[in-house]
């Protein structure tokens, strides 16, 4: 299905370039598949990270807590805490329970993604690892996989907590009728998100939505702003699908016409910044420095 969504992304990109930049199809394809983007040192690092992470998580995944084990624990905890289990909504039609579950899961998952993302930017030792993702100078749909494994563990934990909570609570109260409304094997909201060009978030195609829609949903252009080297764009647009969380947290920035965005951590390009060993190891060095600073700080506090 990933390829299907990529094709949708391609189609949207062509339509967008024809409409906004008045390009013909040939020019649009040339821009979309520019070797300066797809074969840049940053893109090459993306590809290497993708394969290294695949291998790492092949060994790591079986060791991680599964959402089913966590949900089982939480279900038992609810049973013990509440003392009994009464199924509610037995007279409700199935569709209402499925719709409620699908909506709650979507909202909780999207909020958790927003909030963890915010923490990744605002907590120094987490930022050290999330920087790997932001160090991309060029972006392709493969950049979505440009993630440090430590950050991957954070994402895994986030998923387990969200999925286990929502499953355990819903099944505890609503029983076996709980289900996820899916389209082509994924949740309906994820499907819509993918159809709206989610794969263009990590690309140079600045697909924008109408202003009113960008207050509700994060467009690819808004996510590209999140990757901008401009200080005014730092710590903005954390959201994944919904823009409402950023609106509430006052971190929402809408896209603007003809805005050319440069991607990366800063304007200055450092030598060796796309070196794969540097990408994997530098976060640990940074965390060590942060830890040292913390120790120094606490020492000074206790001395005074």
């Amino acid at each position: 299905m990933f390829y299907g969504y990529l094709l949708i992304g391609l189609l949207l990109a062509v339509i967008w370039l024809r409409w906004s930049a008045k390009q013909n199809t040939r020019e649009a394809f040339r821009e979309i598949f520019s070797s300066e983007i797809w074969w840049s040192s940053s893109a090459k690092a993306d590809y290497a990270i993708f394969f290294i992470n695949k291998l790492t998580f092949f060994f790591l995944a079986p060791l991680l807590l599964t959402q089913l084990a966590a949900a089982t624990w939480l279900f038992t905890f609810l049973h013990e805490s509440i003392g009994y289990r009464t199924i509610i909504g037995e007279s409700w039609p199935d569709i209402s329970i499925i719709a409620l579950f699908t909506l709650c899961y979507f909202l909780l998952d999207d909020f958790a993604r927003f909030y963890v993302h915010k923490l990744l930017h605002e907590v120094p030792f987490l930022w050290a690892f999330h920087k790997v993702h932001h160090s991309a100078r060029t972006m392709t749909p493969m950049t979505v996989f440009r993630t440090h494994p430590v950050e991957g563990l954070v994402f895994a934990m986030r998923s387990v907590i969200v999925q286990a909570s929502v499953m355990a609570i819903f099944i505890f109260f609503f029983g076996g009728r709980v289900d996820l409304y899916t389209v082509l094997g994924v949740g309906v909201f994820t499907f819509v998100f993918n159809m709206m060009g989610s794969n263009l978030r990590h690309s140079h195609i600045g697909l924008r939505y109408w202003g009113w829609l960008e207050s509700i949903l994060i467009s690819p252009a808004q996510h590209q702003i999140h990757h901008s080297v401009e200080p005014k764009h730092f710590d903005k647009n954390y959201g994944v699908i919904l823009a409402i969380w950023d609106r509430m947290g006052k971190s929402l920035v809408k896209s603007s016409k003809h805005e050319r965005i440069e991607f990366g951590l800063s304007k200055k390009v450092l030598k060796g910044e796309q070196n794969i060993i540097f990408i994997y190891l530098s976060p640990f060095r940074e965390v060590a420095m942060i830890a040292r600073e913390c120790i120094q700080y606490f020492k000074s506090v206790f001395k005074s």
Binding site: N53, Q67, R113, H133, R146, M167, G176, V178, L180
Partner: peptide, 21 residues
């Protein structure tokens, strides 16, 4: 008793540990 949970877990599971935001 938890069979429904197993079925649901199968649908929610994405396995996308390294998909960034």
């Amino acid at each position: 008793v938890l069979a429904d949970m197993g079925d649901l877990a199968g649908k929610l599971s994405s396995g996308g540990y390294v998909e960034n935001d």
